[in-house]
Design a protein around this nucleic acid. Sequence first.
DNA 1: CTGAAAGCGCTAACAT
DNA 2: ATGTTAGCGCTTTCAG
Lengths: 330, 330
Amino acid sequence: MGRKVTVGDVAASAGVSRATAARVLAGHTTVNPDMAKRVIKASEGLGYSANVVARALRTQRTDTVGMVVPSISNPYFVGAVEALEGVLAASGRALILCDSRDSADTEAARIEVLLNRMVDGLIVIPVSAEDSVAALRTAATQCRVVQFDRLSQGAGTDFVGSDNFAGVRQCVAHLRDRGCVRIAYVGAAPTTSTATERLRAFEGSTGGHPDGRVLLGEFTAAWGTEAALTLLREGRMPDGIVCGADVIAVSLLAALRAAGVEVPTDVKVVSYDNSGLGLLTAPRLTSVDQPLAAMAEETVRLLDAGLDAAAPPRKSIFAPKLIVRESTGG
Amino acid sequence: MGRKVTVGDVAASAGVSRATAARVLAGHTTVNPDMAKRVIKASEGLGYSANVVARALRTQRTDTVGMVVPSISNPYFVGAVEALEGVLAASGRALILCDSRDSADTEAARIEVLLNRMVDGLIVIPVSAEDSVAALRTAATQCRVVQFDRLSQGAGTDFVGSDNFAGVRQCVAHLRDRGCVRIAYVGAAPTTSTATERLRAFEGSTGGHPDGRVLLGEFTAAWGTEAALTLLREGRMPDGIVCGADVIAVSLLAALRAAGVEVPTDVKVVSYDNSGLGLLTAPRLTSVDQPLAAMAEETVRLLDAGLDAAAPPRKSIFAPKLIVRESTGG
DNA sequence: CTGAAAGCGCTAACAT
DNA sequence: ATGTTAGCGCTTTCAG
């Protein structure tokens, strides 16, 4: 376990003071070029690289952003993580990722851990519209916080998400366009803003058609399977199904096909998230895409823009777009 | 942005010295119960929680383990992350996760970042059997390193993985048992130990049958699709296919079905990883399971067991087990 | 332009 | 048993 080389080592090797070495390493131009050269050389020779922990303690900045997501096995969240990680890396920052396991308690604990690590900012996809508020509020007093994808009202943080009403409206319109008249919704119970908005949007879009069956569970594959079995058991299969997320749709699709229901012939399926998952199925999923890259950029922009406590939290809402594939007839 | 409360604040509020407050907070018993009580109360009243960064700088321990995986969108790796995160959390440690994007350069950079953060240990699923060695070697001089799943020979670190030969042998035996005689292998090019071993195992198991078609690409869904199209184009469809990973198998399955090839009737498919992905397909995938929970436990055990530099690196190899599902006839 | 010195928040000798 | 003090490695005044 060889000790890391420190500025002291570099300074000594270059025959200058620690301060000068530090200045050169920090890119300050107010240094004698000769000395600068000596320091650079010594630094490279010794393979110096700064101890981030010590620097953080001194500067109160870690160049690190924390992120908490409900489940790392949901590919939509993984996509969000990748997008954000990319944007942050571009400005030399790292992302520390935590999984809240869909539990508000775990979420609060993770947020605490990250704050103790002095992250410069926090990006949270909250577990619950209500239960996440407290932890978010206190976090917001310590560092910049942005909620992503899901909004917990009253947490007093900025928010970046997409227009779920517009997304679901596109789904329903598309199914109607393809001739569907009995459309069902298989989504998650309204404990998060996305689940709530998508549900409301579905109800709004099909208000005149009380035929629309609504099945509410969780954002999990298991629920997709269960919902499919329920529909099969009920016998009266809809001719169109809107799913609240790809994780639901994919397993629902598999269960329907296993039962001999043909997609898109017998029933057309449209989903939400446009994750890689929807490309692995046969047929591939028609799904609502959210502009993750742009959303990630905006999230980091908000993190960087110091919010003065008085200003009201900002909301950036992006427009989603339906990507049509074979599950609705291509 | 309220400042965090420090030991100093707690000490002042309790009317004791910083040292005493620190002792109480650290659970030392050598303190006057009255004072202890006062400190605890002050601590709770002020909502104190220790600054991990400052502590780390002093103790040279962060209670944090770094992990670098080739791609966070491969569900097998996600499963490994979840298992390790669970074991570490049980002993009060956190996991910092980095994605090397399947690039040895990125991997080296991530390892550097983590070392600068003074992680207590490093768990790496190396990108390449050869190109990862250098970064791993230097990392191993700074902290405890364990390679997981894939082994880069000569890095001088401990290793935890599973017996790929045994796994593939089970696959081939199972297909034969189900009556397959023309078995193909769709895997990854041998740039990693797992790809190499699985390929060799396949060649070894089917040595007497030069019929066995071998297609090598990457551990990606895109490759699975491409391989399926190649097999379809060649016309002479095998009656059994061994896939090197679920990500490959799932998209291969979708492409075959889309082309009207029935699984398992026309061709039986067996895969590797037993990730959640294989449960989402219709039919569900027969796949080789690796005991991730036990492997994670062992990994942390090795991290904790200080290796003296002289001792040879240790290897823990776990036995995989084929889980039979519908893609081979149930 | 350079160096000496202080200090981020914490813990562990050392001294009382 | 408690307090005082030094110092982890770094940056950044403040003198010179």
